[in-house]
Design a binder for these strands. Structure first.
Length: 446
RNA sequence: GUGGUUGUAGCUCAGUUGGUUAGAGCGCAAGAUUGUGGAUCUUGAGGUCGCGGGUUCAAGACCCGUCUUCCACCCCA
């Protein structure tokens, strides 16, 4: 049996896990300090919870879990006979793996509403699964780090979430650009261009502006059946960068003006502090997830070829579908794998993460090995990450192990050391060594 | 989901128009050095050539299928 992993999944080595944990710890610390509380939800959700929430494309990317037992017993005979996989699925799979953390969170809020205080602020760091074709920075199993607040429509939260993005990436030393837009501005754009009925086509097309250029956008709009008048109007609209200019352009659209006003409020809050990264209005930012209704966010890493490393937005009625109406929510997500890949590429992980052990004990024979075991316990009790080579093997072997583990200090214990209590401490980088008591060594390593 | 691409030792990769026993570097193990890792030298171990079929006297190489990798779409973190 040859071992292998399913497509788009990975193992993580200790060296990788130290970096991943550093990432998660940094993110979690900021989330916590902003008053968000942790929750978790199951990897498995009822398929009925997940389907229809991510658009047609999203449904195709849902992992479905085959029912247990005689799953064919309850299969839809017609769909089976017709080889209609899409139709058959619902009769043989009642559960699926979560596709993101936002929809399960909405379910969580509805089911636990009596226990929650609103506005309810939660964070959630868990893997999600998508049956996508893998590419660089695109996996079938990956972690998202979500922060959301439900039960308030205050635009303060949009500003707060932008600040969280800013602070986390500043702490990680990763330079980013944080993009903001508002679905209402996009709606106003379609309205003013006279193509309100082609809203989706328009957003999908203009979202690609930075990738394919204006000519590419115009081409796609035309292919999607947007009339020429509308295309030209879109082109002149997109020539505007500032919110002020857009206010004039969208004067004819009540919705559009509302979107502008919302963004102005958000930027008004943000201006109270000084972000470390750029936070800018980008009218071409669209984002696919169909449930967003207000402000939308996206984060791009500077100096690396990678898609977005985070995104989110305001959803006015996500819980409505689960039976709780009029609860507004807003949240953003950090794409842990992509942030990891970018940081690895730009070599932004602290060098200190490459070592774990601070001290290794090395003994020469059975007697000193037992003595070293006692010293080891004392060092550990004093809070030092220490280990003892499991047997009094040849020094060369033990030293090589210390070297390979990148241990900065080794304590050598032979009969002489044991007799007078003066242990040999060796600095593995400089090669220097001297005699010290265990207490001195513990003191030194603190 | 569509089109393309990749797979040979633990890792990175050679391998000629199909032709003897599939190689290198790094890594690993042992020794040179019996109380000292990194450098050097010596020796050694390690391969179902992704997997399954097919063509051929003969396949790592050619054909088909399949899995995987990466890329462009689609979409997205």
């Amino acid at each position: 049996m040859k071992p292998s992993l399913p497509k788009g999944t990975r193992d993580f080595t200790p060296a990788q896990m130290r970096k991943r944990n550093y990432l998660f710890d940094t993110i979690r610390e900021v989330f916590t300090r902003y008053g968000y509380q942790p929750i978790e939800t199951p990897a498995l959700e009822s398929l009925s919870t997940l389907t229809g929430k991510y658009g047609e494309e999203g449904d195709k990317l849902l992992f479905k879990v085959l029912n247990n037992g005689d799953f064919l017993g309850g299969a839809d005979e017609q769909a089976l006979a017709a080889r209609d996989s899409a139709k058959l699925a619902s009769s043989i799979a009642k559960r699926g793996l979560r596709y993101d953390l936002t929809v399960p969170f909405a379910r969580f809020v509805v089911m636990n509403q009596q226990d929650l205080n609103f506005p309810f602020k939660r964070y959630q760091i868990q893997p999600v699964w998508r049956a996508d074709r893998p590419q660089k920075g695109r996996y079938q199993e990956f972690y998202q780090c979500d922060v959301d607040v439900v039960g308030s429509d205050s635009l303060m939260y949009e500003a707060e979430l932008a600040s969280i993005y800013d602070e986390v990436f500043a702490k990680l030393g990763l330079k980013v650009r944080i993009l903001l837009n508002n679905r209402k501005i996009l709606a106003g754009m379609a309205e003013v261009a006279g193509i309100a009925d082609r809203f989706m086509d328009m957003t999908i097309a203009i979202d690609k502006l930075d990738k394919v250029g204006m000519d590419g956008v115009k081409k796609e709009l035309a292919e999607r059946g947007v009339p020429e008048d509308g295309i030209n109007r879109i082109e002149t609209l997109l020539a505007n960068q500032s919110l002020e200019a857009w206010k004039g352009e969208l004067a004819g659209s009540e919705t559009g003006l509302k979107g502008i006003a919302e963004l102005e409020t958000v930027f008004g809050y943000l201006a109270q502090n000084e972000p470390a990264n750029e936070v800018v209005f980008d009218p071409t930012l669209a984002r696919g997830l169909s449930y967003y209704t207000g402000c939308i966010f996206e984060v791009r890493a500077l100096g690396a070829q990678m898609g977005s490393i985070g995104g989110g937005g305001r959803y006015d009625d996500l819980t409505g579908i689960f039976g709780l109406a009029n609860v507004s929510g807003v949240g953003v997500s950090f794409g842990a794998e992509r942030i990891y890949d970018v940081m690895e590429e730009l070599e932004l992980f602290p060098a200190s993460l490459s070592q774990d052990l601070a001290l290794l004990f090395v003994a020469f024979d059975e007697e000193t090995h037992r003595y070293a075991f006692r010293c080891l316990a004392q060092a550990r009790a004093a809070g030092i990450t220490a280990d003892l080579y499991p047997e009094p093997a040849k020094l060369k072997k033990q030293m090589k192990y210390a070297n390979d583990r990148r241990v900065p200090y080794v304590v050598l214990i032979g009969s002489e050391e044991m007799a007078n209590g003066l242990l040999t401490l060796k600095n593995m980088e400089s090669g220097e060594q001297g005699r010290h008591t265990l207490e001195e060594i513990i003191e030194k390593l603190h």
